[in-house]
């Protein structure tokens, strides 16, 4: 699979007002590349949910986006607390977000299911106390 482009971002958890800047940049670049609106929408939703998660549940992290002729691969890696029960975390409505996060408009437990819904494949590698890496592939 020939790789056309790779994008790398460091996501900080210090300033919540800036959350989503990486996703916004990826969206703009995909538009410039002429990727279909349907694929862009899926990437935008899945990546933004993931970016928010690494800010509210971990301490920020790194995002790597690779674009080939066939697919867009999103890798979100953080060194946060990890997820104790992935199956539970995948259920719609399950959230450990504190009230503070809820008052900002997040924490409904919709993110992970929405990421799965918008990607063609999704894999979560996680270890308690070490971190979480979410890999999503969206075919184009």
């Amino acid at each position: 699979m020939a790789e056309l482009m790779e994008l790398n971002y460091t996501v900080s958890n210090e300033d919540f007002t800036r959350a989503g800047e990486a996703s916004s940049d990826v969206k703009k670049k995909l538009k410039q590349l002429g990727v279909s609106p349907e694929a862009i929408r899926k990437v935008a939703i899945a990546l933004y949910e993931g970016e928010i998660n690494m800010i509210i549940h971990a301490y920020g992290g790194k995002i790597k986006v690779t674009i080939s002729e066939e697919a867009i691969t999103l890798i979100l890696a953080d060194k946060g607390p990890g997820i104790a029960d992935v199956e539970k975390a995948m259920q719609a409505g399950y959230s450990t977000a504190p009230d503070k996060v809820r008052s900002l408009g997040f924490g409904a437990g919709m993110g992970l299911p929405n990421m799965k819904k918008n990607s063609d494949s999704m894999e979560i590698q996680t270890e308690l106390g070490v971190g979480t890496t979410v890999t999503m592939v969206i075919n184009i």
């Binding site: 919540f16 996703s23 916004s24 935008a44 933004y48």
Partner: peptide, 26 residues
């Protein structure tokens, strides 16, 4: 992020930059 459709307007009482980001993504 989970339910909005295309060509949709968003009515909200939440007022922070993430509302703008969410609108951009959707």
């Amino acid at each position: 992020l989970a339910f909005a459709k295309t060509q949709c307007v968003l009515l909200t009482g939440l007022c922070n930059p993430q509302v703008i980001r969410t609108a951009e993504m959707m």
